[in-house]
């Protein structure tokens, strides 16, 4: 037995004490993907503490990894990406990356306007600015997992962060086409729905004076009913917890933001990006086919009740 233990200890020492040779592996910080059409892809990658970008143009999205590794002459680990930048119409590379385990589901992502230079966008402290925008309730928290989950949902549309002219907003996308860029109010409404911000402040004008309102938290519930004509009545019950400001003005502001959000997503495009399908199912409503569900959302009446 002693001999067996000694042999095992030696084997463990030999096999388990070796580390990965760090000279052959780098940790990517930012990965940028540009799609021109469905088949043409170019990818760029920047590593930690590295100013140079490694770029490659694989024939298909499936060939990202070998193309980048060949271009860089090194293996890449992308499990700790701080930002995934996208440019172009197609979002299929993101689904591919998630499926292949290249990116974590909570990896933040950003869609860039086609006119922007990805290198300069990636070189800026964009990732930190994006995090701050989420923390301050300007944008909802959206990762690769949310994007792919929403794209694979019944309505097939998803929201993602959008950057254009040094300004962050939200884009509504169906996987192949950018449908709309949401207004500031709609972006804030989306952030309000997620309730994953640190500080949520806004201003409202009352009697010619501007009042500042700070929220502590926001709890949202959906109550969905169907009227006699099968039209959906979606009641959003919002429970606001105020830190400072007038409750009536806070309710007014929150209602405006949520209404803008529902109008620009559900009413205009029939998009379901805030679990309306699940809420309907919970309320005992049978969810029809994708086309009918989109139509029902377009015709739905949205009511906001502030508590």
């Amino acid at each position: 037995m002693k001999r067996f233990l000694a042999v095992s200890a030696i084997l463990c020492t030999i096999f388990l004490s070796g580390c990965t040779d760090i000279r052959h592996r780098k940790y990517a910080d930012v990965l940028a993907i540009r799609t021109a059409d469905s088949d043409t892809v170019s990818a760029m990658l920047r590593c930690d503490n590295d100013k140079d970008w490694i770029s490659a143009s694989p024939d298909t999205a499936l060939l990202f990894q070998p193309a980048l590794e060949t271009a860089g002459g090194i293996q890449f680990s992308t499990g700790h990406l701080s930002l995934l930048i996208l440019q172009g119409d197609s979002l299929s590379p993101v689904q591919q990356l998630l499926r292949d385990g290249w990116v974590a589901p909570n990896c933040p992502l950003l869609l860039c306007d086609p006119s922007e230079d990805i290198r300069s966008v990636g070189d800026e402290k964009l990732s930190d600015q994006q995090k701050a925008a989420v923390e301050n309730g300007l944008l909802p928290e959206i990762g690769v997992g949310e994007l792919v989950g929403n794209l694979e949902s019944r309505t097939g549309m998803a929201l993602l962060h959008y950057h254009s002219n040094n300004h962050f907003s939200l884009a509504l996308h169906n996987g192949t086409t950018l449908l709309a860029v949401l207004s500031n109010d709609a972006c804030r409404g989306a952030a309000l729905l997620t309730d994953r911000w640190g500080d949520f402040g806004f201003s409202e004008i009352s009697g010619g004076l501007t009042e500042t309102i700070l929220l502590d938290s926001c709890r949202i519930r959906f109550r969905i009913q169907q009227d006699s004509e099968n039209r959906l009545i979606i009641r959003t019950i919002v429970r606001l917890s105020l830190r400072t400001g007038d409750p009536a003005l806070a309710a007014q502001g929150a209602t405006r933001m949520l209404q803008a959000f529902f109008r620009e997503t559900a009413t205009d495009f029939g998009a379901d990006v805030c679990y309306l399908e699940e809420a309907a199912r919970r309320c005992g409503i049978t969810v029809p086919s994708a086309q009918q569900w989109r139509e029902m959302l377009r015709n739905a009446a949205f009511e906001i009740l502030i508590e």
Binding site: P105, E146, G149
Partner: peptide, 19 residues
Amino acid sequence: QCGRLRTFHGNPFLLLLAR
């Protein structure tokens, strides 16, 4: 935790940990 993401290929426990 996983929300609407259902077609994740691989071990879902790793997905849960990542989320």
